[in-house]
Simulated scan of single mutants.
Amino acid sequence: MSDYEFDYASRIQKVRALLERLELNFIIITNIQNLYWLSGTAQYGVLLLSAKEKPALFIRRNFFKAKEEAYIENIIEMKKTSQVKEFILKLTKSLDNLRIGMELDSLPASFYIYYKKMLNGAEITNIELDVRKLRMIKDQKELDLFKKAGKIAQKAQERILEVLKPGIKEYEVAAEVIYEAIKNQSVHFSNVNNTFGENWFIVASGKNLWTPSYFPILSGEGLSKAIPYGYSVREIRKGDIIMCDYAINYRGYHADHARTFYVETYPEGFKRKYRILKNAYEEIKQDYLKAGTKVSEIYHQMKNILKKEGLDKFFQGDGYYYQGLGHGIGLELDEPPAILPNNDLELKENMVIALEPKIIIPGWGAIDLEDNFIIKSNNAEQITNTLYLFE
């Protein structure tokens, strides 16, 4: 075993407490991010937890690397998945009436069918959201990594100001942003729901600002119909609004940062709308970003402020499609809590959230301001600090 950066014993104890609260006999962890969070390795495998027995880490690939990296002592080379069943049977003698928790939101359907058949007689229950919620409150080492990721995100956004000019294309702006991020040790993909390799990297200008395609709502057009979101071949012109939303992944931990710019001059109404959104954002940061606030209240208060300015119809959407105001970040780009109008989960100290207020006005443009915050008892520490316009 190597030197450990995190308190894995405490994390495992949290999952065991969950196991007992849900009255489970075993928990089987297959989600990559949860495997890493609990064991210290993201090698391909399965982690088996029970109330009293030592955790068992089954590694299919790379067994030797996992032995070097993992906190778990009991590491078993997995030649076939049925070894997990055999291990359980050594402890219980029978699968009948066992209750086993698994992460069913991220487990492929074919895997679920296999496990269901292999563990015939046991009840399999979904614990995905429960485990993800255990990761919401970060420890100090994680917070240090977030701060570093935030600085990289800021450098990537600031690069746009250095290259933005009439005639440059969206994909050329994107290339500069990506290069700046990678140069500072970010990988160009995000961890999303048990996968590596996704990144909803958006650079959008012109009609691409208000034309939803795929996901998210402010999606950009993309380079082709086969990949219908993100940066496109559109040439940026004088007077354009341009928005960049880019996720940093630094040593597994994310920053999610967006800014909106203009090219030499700005269109009619842009300065006023930008200031309205930014001032509303500042009010929310000052009054509501702190431990104890329900995330639904953040959403409703932001919308109410914009309603007074006649912009509530375009808050977080284009008048037809809408999305949430933000989300937690961590080992995955999007984690609980989702900042939605019907989510009454309370912010707690050392949660890390991305707050992304935006307005999208068809035929005119869009403004998107996204920053990341460490929640404190009486306020929040902003860790992405690219300058706003008109300051």
Results as ranks from 00 to 15, higher is better:
Ser296Arg: 13
Ala247Val: 12
Leu164Cys: 05
Glu391Asn: 14
Thr386Tyr: 07
Asp139Trp: 03
Ile59Ser: 01
Ala149Trp: 03
Leu143Gly: 04
Val177Lys: 09
Leu91Lys: 15
Arg60Pro: 00
Pro108Ala: 03
Arg234Glu: 14
Arg11Lys: 14
Trp200Met: 07
Glu381Thr: 12
Ser39Ile: 01
Phe87Val: 01
Asp318His: 06
Lys80Ile: 05
Asn34Pro: 01
Arg132Pro: 00
Gln140Met: 11
Arg132Cys: 02
Ile298Gly: 04
Ile227Asn: 12
Ile305Asn: 01
Ile305Tyr: 14
Asn350Thr: 03
Trp37Ser: 03
Glu69Ala: 02
Asp105Leu: 13
Pro362Lys: 07
Asn199Val: 08
Gln140Ile: 14
Ile27Tyr: 02
Lys80Phe: 09
Ala56Pro: 00
Leu134Arg: 03
Pro357Leu: 10
Glu268Ala: 13
Ile383Asn: 10
Asp105Arg: 13
Arg272Cys: 01
Leu369Gly: 04
Gly239Glu: 02
Gly269Phe: 08
Glu176Val: 04
Lys79Met: 06
Ala9Asp: 12
Tyr320Lys: 15
Leu325Gln: 01
Leu387Thr: 11
Gln154Trp: 04
Glu123Gly: 02
Ile248Tyr: 07
Lys79Asp: 13
Gly328Cys: 06
Lys207Gln: 11
Asp368Lys: 13
Ile72Asp: 01
Val263Gly: 08
Glu86Ile: 04
Lys85Met: 08
Arg11Trp: 06
Ile339Ser: 04
Leu49Cys: 05
Phe373Ala: 05
Met78Asp: 05
Asp3Trp: 02
Arg132Ala: 11
Leu48Met: 10
Ala181Tyr: 05
Ile242Asn: 06
Lys80Asn: 13
Thr384Leu: 06
Ser106Gln: 10
Ile32His: 00
Ala174Leu: 15
Asn350Lys: 09
Glu346Ile: 09
Lys169Phe: 02
Asp130Met: 01
Ile59Glu: 00
Phe189Asn: 12
